Structures are given as structure tokens and as C-alpha cells.
Simulated assay, not measured.
Amino acid sequence: MLEGIHHAAIICSDYGKSRQFYVGILGLEVIAENFRAGRNSWKLDLALPDGGQVELFSFPTAPPRPSYPEAQGLRHLAFRVAALEPVIRHLQDCGIEVEPVRVDEYTGKRFTFFSDPDGLPLELYEQG
């Protein structure tokens, strides 16, 4: 049976910009980085601290995906954090806009959203 999520895959419009965002700003560790010449595509495997991974792809003719208004399909990618404020400050110091903190009405946990360079909604979910 299922044991957990292995990875989430993201197709970006500007590989260099997205690589800098996920590695330089979010601090994800590079596992492997490969250029696939036959597809004219980069594939970047990034490690999350809990053992999960994010795969970052570039495809030269990928169409944009609507995020707002919300469309059917995968809604967002959420990252677990011990405390929101230090991460929010870091993102804001890097020039990234972060939405106001909200409280989950069912769990009482605090969370907020921000976006990657392509407008993909990303969530910070406080576990503390």
C-alpha cells in the first residue's frame, strides 16, 4: 500500500529563475540536475528535509496553467514549517509577496500562501 508522497513535479517557464527560487530562496538541496537534449528540457531533482522531493522540469512549449481563478486539478503544494514568522520574513526579504496568515478552521493551525515564479500557489503550514 501507499507509504507517502515521493515527489511533486513542477513544469516551469524559466528554468534559471525557478532554479534560483527553489534552491537559492527556499533552500532545497540539489540531488541531481540533468539536461535532456532529446527533449530540450532540464530536470532538477530537489530534496525536502523529510525525504520527499520536488522535481523541476523545463519544456520549451509548455502552455501556462491557470492558477487564478482556481481551476480543477492539483490546487497547491504545501510545505510543513515549525514556525511561520521566520520563513515569512525570509521570503519577504527576498522580495516575495506573502499573503496574510490565516487559521485553519478545523485544525486551528496557522498557514499562509505565496507563489513561485510561475504563479504556482505554495503554502506554508505551521506544525508548531
Rank of each mutant, 00 (worst) to 15 (best):
F113G: 08
Y22T: 07
L74W: 11
R80I: 09
P66F: 01
W42I: 05
P117M: 04
V23S: 10
R65M: 04
P64L: 06
S13G: 15
V103P: 12
G27F: 13
D93G: 09
A32V: 07
Q72Y: 15
F35W: 12
G119K: 00
L56T: 00
N34E: 14
P63F: 03
P86Y: 14
D116L: 04
P63I: 00
Q20W: 03
L77K: 12
P100V: 00
I11Q: 10
Q53C: 10
I96Q: 08
A8K: 02
E126M: 08
R102W: 08
G27R: 07
H6Y: 12
L84M: 13
S13I: 02
D116S: 06
L2K: 04
A47C: 10
L122S: 07
R19W: 03
D50Q: 03
P60H: 01
A8E: 01
K17Q: 12
R65W: 07
Y68N: 13
P86M: 04
M1H: 09
P86I: 05
I25R: 02
D50R: 00
A37V: 08
V98W: 09
T112D: 03
K43D: 15
R39K: 15
G108P: 03
D45Y: 08
A62D: 09
G119E: 11
H7Y: 14
F111S: 09
L46Q: 05
G27Y: 11
R39A: 14
L28N: 00
V23Y: 03
F111W: 13
E123C: 14
G38I: 01
E55M: 02
S58H: 04
I88Q: 05
Q53V: 12
R75T: 12
F114L: 10
H90G: 01
G4K: 07
R65K: 04
E97K: 14
A47K: 14
Q127L: 10
E55G: 00
G38D: 12
H76N: 14
D45R: 03
L46R: 01
N40E: 13
G52I: 00
D14L: 03
Q127M: 14
V98P: 13
H7W: 10
V30L: 05
A78H: 12
V54E: 07
G73V: 00
A8N: 03
M1A: 12
F57W: 10
Q92N: 11
G27V: 08
I88N: 13
L122V: 05
V30R: 07
L2S: 13
L26V: 01
D14M: 09
I31G: 15
D50C: 00
Y15Q: 07
V87W: 07
